Amino acid sequence: MLTKKLASAIAIGFLLFGCAPSAQKPITQAAIAPPQNTTLSPVPTTATIIPVDTSVFDNALSTAIGASTISRTAQSDIDRELVVNKWEEAIALMKSVPPSDKNYAMAQKKIIEYRKNLSTSLQKPKPTIEKSSEPSNIKLVPVNTTNAQNDISEVMNSYIQLVLSGEKGDKYFCSPEDVSTFFAPRSAKVLNIGDEYTSAGGGRGAYVTVQMESSNKGGSPIINNWKFVMQKSKGTWCIGTIFDH
């Protein structure tokens, strides 16, 4: 009897404790990192530089036009030197035109043309001397002609030496308005001293022919004869006018 009761108690205990639900462990979820903002780097681009196709032939033409334009108004040595440099630059550019260029044949013709222009630019213009006609109503005076020629010769030789040294020689002119200058004279000599004359107004004068050798910037010699009109003022011979003989 006792055994049955014990068995019943065990069975009831088994039912009470055996069927109790087991404690469930909480489920731990893995931490999920929030999405990060991704910054996209810009794709580097390579700039394409398109070279400007500048024609050497066109540059040469432009330079030549500049030389021609400046030469029309050139007055000073600086202006003329700029013209020379422009022509030389234009020639150099034309020479650099390759045979494959469509303008090659024309460039060869332009080289010849520009060389002529360069040669002209290198020639120094003659001194700007107002040409005057020979005095009219001249009466030759044979008396004391030799003495006058000696005095004039002394004045002219002193003037020539001063001019060849690089001076103007303005002190030998009768007035400042009569002063004329020569460019880079190399040598000069008196060819002839004419007879003394008197004008209708009673003034005394004489002609002197002088051969002057100078040069242009290119070094080419320029030889020209000049006629000096000598006048006697206050007892001294001076240069009144110079004109191309």
Rank of each mutant, 00 (worst) to 15 (best):
S96M: 06
K126T: 09
L118D: 06
K168N: 10
S62C: 02
A107V: 02
K126R: 13
Y104G: 04
S55G: 10
I152A: 02
S100Y: 12
K126H: 13
P221D: 13
F183L: 04
S41H: 15
N137Y: 06
V56Y: 06
N144D: 15
L16G: 04
S214Y: 05
L40D: 08
T69G: 07
E88P: 00
Y172P: 05
A30C: 07
I10F: 13
I242A: 01
L82V: 13
S96L: 05
G205N: 00
S136N: 08
G240L: 09
V163Q: 10
F182G: 03
S165M: 09
I112T: 15
P51F: 05
A33N: 13
C238A: 02
T128N: 12
G202T: 03
I78F: 09
R80T: 02
A67H: 00
C19G: 05
S215Y: 05
G218T: 00
I91K: 11
F57W: 01
Q108N: 09
I78W: 08
T209R: 06
P21S: 15
D178A: 12
Q108W: 05
I49W: 08
T28F: 14
C238R: 05
T39K: 11
T146M: 14
S62P: 01
V141W: 01
K25E: 14
L140Y: 04
S121Q: 07
I32T: 14
G201M: 00
K102G: 10
K5T: 13
T28A: 15
P26I: 03
N224T: 07
K139P: 08
N157E: 07
V52K: 13
I129T: 03
G201I: 08
E134G: 11
M212S: 00
M94P: 09
R80D: 09
P44Q: 04
